[in-house]
Design a protein around this nucleic acid. Structure first.
Lengths: 199, 199
DNA sequence: CTTGAAACTTATACTAGGTCAAAAATTGTC
DNA sequence: GACAATTTTTGACCTAGTATAAGTTTCAAG
């Protein structure tokens, strides 16, 4: 059944990803070329693109997680529970689990510095955000997604993005993960309160 | 003092823009190369980039308008008037003036179709949106922009974008500019109501 | 009207992301 | 071990965007 084949592919993919990430942290995203990555991972350029559709995906390969988390948060919510409450619980859960999406510390900030220095990574992040909005709108409204659902979904994603960005800023200013967390959750609450006012 | 020079530049810039827009409508954004544009406008490729920093700017050259409109709406607001009210008045004004930012008709939809078919135009549009958020946050909060201001600004931009997108969808479905307008204003009101709940 | 400086445009060449087709190597199955 | 399927590679190609240096046009001053 192609076990060896599968594991080799996983290995190759992983090697490319690891090598690329290391290079990006070292030199910055834009200063590293695909040829650099390919050479360091000992594969050819087309092979890199065989595993990662865009250069940005070498650094941002958590997009699928977003969809999964949203779905399981909304799918697993108690009957009658408002979506906004289920999402609020998701934030708390991820925050307690120190999930990188909901927690700022030295590591996340290192990651963010790479992003902040690269316009194309930021562009890709915006794109992922919009995809998340569409996915979330689908979860919220079922098959018939309308403007109201998109607006609600947009508010969650916007709130998350804004809270995350603010937390980074606070961390960089104060070097305190605690203060960053507080700022993060405060903005989350603010945004979610506004989202509640939508209906 | 260089009158002829100035007018020639204006002319060249305009010619490039017109020629490019026509080509984009004709063949789609991605199917037209900068070389095509340069040849059709009878200039060289570097000259095109001399006037437009990116290819996308050949089609989206209203970014400055956004900043100007926001500034004059918030600058000219009556003392004591809430920013949200001033922005709401801006929407109404643009809508009545049939400004493309706030009105959907056959022409806007033609423009939108070009955008919808091009990932890079959509990416640039997202970027412009984020720039608008930063600018608006600055207008709202003065020199010290904080997370709350960014969240508020983000909500306005999100609401506008979402309302605009929904209006396009309605127009394409019903072919009625009136229904599109109604959908647009309904979502604007919805989003602005939520934004009011922020404080 | 000439001349020299400044601004604009050009040709040319280059970098880098990304794609494509076909050859070559590797693995799975008979 | 031979044949089929899949992966990888090679190498060529396209396009956006940039740098450089040379050519052209406009301007202002003599």
């Amino acid at each position: 059944m192609g076990e060896l084949r599968e594991s080799k592919k996983r290995e190759t993919r992983q090697r490319i990803s690891d090598v690329a990430t290391a290079l990006f942290f070292e030199r910055g995203f834009d200063a590293v070329t695909i040829d650099d990555v390919a050479a360091a991972a000992k594969v050819s350029k087309p092979t890199v693109f065989n595993y990662f559709a865009r250069k940005e995906d070498l650094f941002l390969d958590r997009q699928d997680d977003v969809r999964v988390l949203l779905r399981e948060a909304l799918g697993g919510k108690a009957k009658g529970e408002a979506p906004v409450d289920a999402l609020r619980r998701l934030v708390d859960r991820l925050h307690h689990e120190k999930h990188p999406f909901a927690r700022i510390d030295g590591e996340t900030v290192g990651w963010w510095r790479v992003v902040a220095a690269s316009p194309s990574l930021q562009a890709r992040l915006r794109e992922i955000g919009d995809e998340a909005v569409e996915a979330l709108a689908g979860e919220l409204a079922g098959p018939k997604v309308d403007g109201a659902a998109r607006l609600a979904a947009g508010m969650f994603v916007l709130t998350w993005r804004t809270a995350y960005g603010e937390a980074i800023r606070v961390f960089e200013r104060t070097a305190s993960a605690k203060k960053a967390s507080t700022a993060f959750l405060a903005l989350i609450d603010r945004g979610f309160a506004a989202a509640r006012a939508l209906d």
